[in-house]
Computed example of a mutant assay.
Amino acid sequence: MIQTLPSMNRRAVLGLGACAAAVAACPALAQGSDKPIRFILPISAGSGVDTIVRAASVALGKAFGQPVVIENLPGAGGITGAAAIVKAAPDGLTLGMVSNNHVINPAVFKKMPFDAINDVTPISVVGATPLVLVVNPKLPAKNVKELVALLRAKPEGYNYASSGNGTIIHLAGEMFMDEAGVKARHIPYKGTGPMVTDMIAGQVEMGVVALPAVQQHIKSGALRAIGLCGATRSPAAPDIPTIAEQGLPNYAVEGWFAVIGPPKMQAADVQRVHDAVAAAFTSAEVRDAMDKQGNVIKPTAPEQAASYFRSEAARYAALVKKANVVLE
């Protein structure tokens, strides 16, 4: 975790140094404030969004003309981190990268400490990342057909992990069980990192994860990919078939990620942040990193992001109701 605290590790210090070097190399971009941009990630280290933002951290510092400090604040399906963004001053110095979970939470939690739509400033839906269903390699299933057969033969005899109750990862698992007509016990974790660790150790048999978070584990054989959750295969993993093409044609879900700020940001600050984020994520070096991870980068305008948040909230509210997911 990169923080402004004395406990920063060596890699974090080097990361900040790289950002500072990038700023120094672009004096035209550094004419504004020399205060760091605090980029809050409401998820644990090692998750898909965490991997994405860290791959773009140097380019973000370069585009903003200011150091960018990344801070993970996981908890409550993203509510903890999002609450910190909501409470921050609307000066453009505190931002966050959120995922589908941000607009799912109002449908799964009975009480929310803020309005997920109206208490933030949507700045850009930056892109989407593929999700993948993986299993521990000791499980005797190499594809969707074999996995479904196992689950049908032993109803609720297997466990599937998620990064937390009501998250997009949880819903993606529920949607798979529903489409396949099978059941498994849901085991929620506090973030992607511990979830993946336990899948590798065999404590849980399967789970849906963002592809960037488990690419290396799939390549090493620590986890086995059953199928991609999106409608099409990913150029980053062309050998992994989709779940849809393996007999569940109606199954399609992917993760998206978006930059938000506190409520009541000035229009000029919103545009400045949007332009910097778009410049960073469309730069050659970041596009190359995103292509390798399988992410599709298409930064939207702020007004498009706001509209997308509303439509996605409505879509997931219907899915949550169908899956009967309600949390205190």
Results as ranks from 00 to 15, higher is better:
Gly173Trp: 03
Val196Gln: 07
Ala201Cys: 09
Asn101Lys: 02
Ala210Glu: 09
Pro130Val: 07
Ile79Leu: 09
Ile104Asn: 07
Ala210Trp: 07
Asp119Ser: 11
Pro122Arg: 09
Thr192Tyr: 05
Gly166Phe: 03
Gly96Ala: 06
His186Tyr: 10
Ala84Tyr: 04
Met175Asn: 14
Leu95His: 00
Leu147Pro: 06
Val125Gly: 08
Ala76Phe: 01
Ala180Ser: 07
Val144Glu: 13
Thr94Tyr: 02
Ala210Gly: 15
Ala82Tyr: 00
Ile85Val: 15
Leu147Ala: 06
Thr94Asn: 03
Gly77Ile: 00
Val98Ser: 04
Thr94Asp: 02
Thr192Gln: 06
Gly191Ile: 00
Arg185Ile: 14
Ala82Lys: 01
Lys154Gly: 04
Lys87Ser: 13
Val126Glu: 10
Thr121Leu: 06
Pro137Arg: 10
Pro140Asp: 10
Ile117Phe: 01
Gly181Ala: 07
Asn159His: 15
Lys145Glu: 13
Lys138Ala: 13
Gly81Trp: 01
Thr129Cys: 11
Ile70Lys: 04
Gly96Thr: 05
Asn143Glu: 11
Ser163Asn: 08
Thr129Gln: 13
Val108Asn: 06
Ser124His: 09
Ser99Arg: 07
Ala116Lys: 01
Ala172Cys: 06
Met195Lys: 09
Gly157Trp: 03
Tyr160Gly: 02
Gly173Leu: 01
Ile169Met: 11
Gly191Leu: 03
Val120Ala: 03
Pro130His: 09
Ala82Leu: 13
Lys111Asp: 15
Ala76Pro: 02
His170Asp: 14
Lys87Val: 06
Ile187Asn: 08
Ala149Pro: 01
Asn72Ser: 08
